[in-house]
Design a protein around this nucleic acid. Sequence first.
DNA 1: GTCTATACGTGGATAGAC
DNA 2: GTCTATCCACGTATAGAC
Lengths: 186, 186
Amino acid sequence: MPAPILTKEEVLGRLMTAFREKGFDGASLAELSAATGLGKSSLYHHFPGGKVEMAQQTLEYLEAALEQSLFEPMRTGEPPEKKLSTMLDTLSAFYGEGRKACLLERLCASVDQRAFRRPLARLFERWIDVVEQLALDAGLPPATARARAEDLVVRIQGALVVCAGTGDMRVFSRTIVELRSSLLAS
Amino acid sequence: MPAPILTKEEVLGRLMTAFREKGFDGASLAELSAATGLGKSSLYHHFPGGKVEMAQQTLEYLEAALEQSLFEPMRTGEPPEKKLSTMLDTLSAFYGEGRKACLLERLCASVDQRAFRRPLARLFERWIDVVEQLALDAGLPPATARARAEDLVVRIQGALVVCAGTGDMRVFSRTIVELRSSLLAS
DNA sequence: GTCTATACGTGGATAGAC
DNA sequence: GTCTATCCACGTATAGAC
């Protein structure tokens, strides 16, 4: 049976799902092979650097996806309150209302974290920068805008950890609700 | 050379350090053996259930340690503001000002997370409960007290993730400063 | 209780055919 | 580009001596 043709994007999307579910250290090549439908050798054809390169390319793929679905919509002429709400909706869906882990966190926590350091730092900083700009547009003073932006990312990440630890996804929902009303408040 | 005698507590303390540094999935028996100075067979003598049991007992050890150093001091007659400050100082030291990972997060993220589910949920909830009581003592309304308590734990965990991702430990410091002034504010 | 030695599976990674 | 077959190291875990 001829293997169904997957585009590179589809492969990377499945790798991302696998890494988010199992973690970088926890995902074995056998699982990544099953997740993508590609044999190990095929994976090595696409990712000569092995598992580390799979995660690196997955991270680049995520960066591009976030640029399009999360960051770009923040550069429209909509009012900041509206854009914040849009961002929180997108994040809430992306994280399955608290049920799905964050690839960034999974790679931060991995044994090979050094291989991901720069792209991880860049992606976190871009995310914070975008939120900071939103806060500036809403008229908050620069120091406050920066702190609020960091705080949004911190709280999203923290909520995911606490949800995973307690099994109570309401923590994530409440965090989103809280951010919606407080992030741009003066 | 006779092996230096380590108490069970000392062994568990070293296992905790190893799990925090490498993660549960990332820590191999060889590393746990080196960290404790015990041969693999000796580890299995103390922890017949293998790596999972090592982490479970380490979690129990952490729970007892937190009970003594973090939770118990919250039951004195000191004013809530003072006790909050004490808790934040203790947490800041425990997490090395953002440089050291949290065992709870490491186990939440592990492939064997189901084996840790109940103790993890219990420990998170006890932590939140203690902070909630602090907020109630400070005169905050019950719903607010609960939300603020969850928020403290969420922000600490999130700050650790963002510090690991960006390499910027100031995020942790700022989070602590922020919590010190805002958690009990009406 | 600790060690040395070892079993045995699975991990990541490769060779080479198609 | 994909597969089957295979390699070797390391993973967890155990046996048995001291």
